[in-house]
Amino acid sequence: MNELQNQDRELAINERAPAPVRLAPFVDVHQNQDGYLVLADLPGVTRSDIAIRLEDNELTVEATRPGRSLGGTEVPPKQYRRQFRVPEGIDATRVDARYESGVLRVTLPKAEAKKPRLIEVQ
């Protein structure tokens, strides 16, 4: 019963909240011999509200930013999303992401050149 009431309250809150605005953040991509550096302007988000995925050579960056309602002025929540096709040969295990001063930095290192492998003769 209590749980039901709580659910009702949550629903009421959700109904009142304005729909999030979908935005594509501004992004820079740089490269050097070691790999790629992706910078995205994501002001006002919390680290834990950023999701980065690298799947089938597609890099997806998503982040949510809470809205604000104060003194009759309402700023709706924002949903940032950007997707890129990245070149082959990225070492997915060494992808690194940092968030500082409202800017997300993702480094995508190139995989080490495949080393010649000695094949043992059985």
Binding site: D41, L42, P43, G44, R68, L70, G71, G72, T73, V75, S101, G102, V103
Partner: peptide, 20 residues
């Protein structure tokens, strides 16, 4: 830039990513 007004103050916010 967003500007809010409450009873005792104004609040101004600006998105400044990457600014020191």
């Amino acid at each position: 830039v967003d500007i809010f007004e409450v009873e005792d103050a104004y609040l101004v916010t600006a998105d400044l990513p990457g600014f020191k």
